[in-house]
Amino acid sequence: MNETSTAPSDARRRGRLSGVGRVLVAVYGVLALAATGRSLVQIIERFDEAPVAYALSALAAVVYILATVALVMPGRAWYRIAWATIVFEFTGVIVVGLLSVLRPDLFPHDTVWSWFGRGYLFIPLVLPPLGMWWLARHPVRDVAADTAGDVRRRRVDAEGRA
């Protein structure tokens, strides 16, 4: 009951962070945590074995963190960063995934994207398209326009009262 009465205003106010988008953010957060933890271990224990693969893992981890933050934060700049990071991830999982299948000698050590993210239940392959679909369904100009509209309405109210 309570939920239905607050949901529409919540959706307008929070923009991307509404409804099922919250689950998307949570899954991104967990993936960011997993990728960061694993790449920390790889770098601390055996960075010299495969500097390229493990540096790539660390880069991927940082991008996952950035994507999680960008999905939560409001505003046009963060919306662009969300798109950029998610496209980067999708490119990464496709390119590294293909290379690890076709030329396994290039990637003897696992990265988060090897075999299309097999070590992570293929979540790295599934998540970016979901993220892009979500971002496309929630363009930021609506939110910006809403906020601008609110400000304008408030100003008119104030002037009207004055």
Partner: peptide, 8 residues
């Protein structure tokens, strides 16, 4: 306190 929090 929404349904999606339960999913999370």
């Amino acid at each position: 306190r929404g349904r999606w929090a339960t999913v999370v």
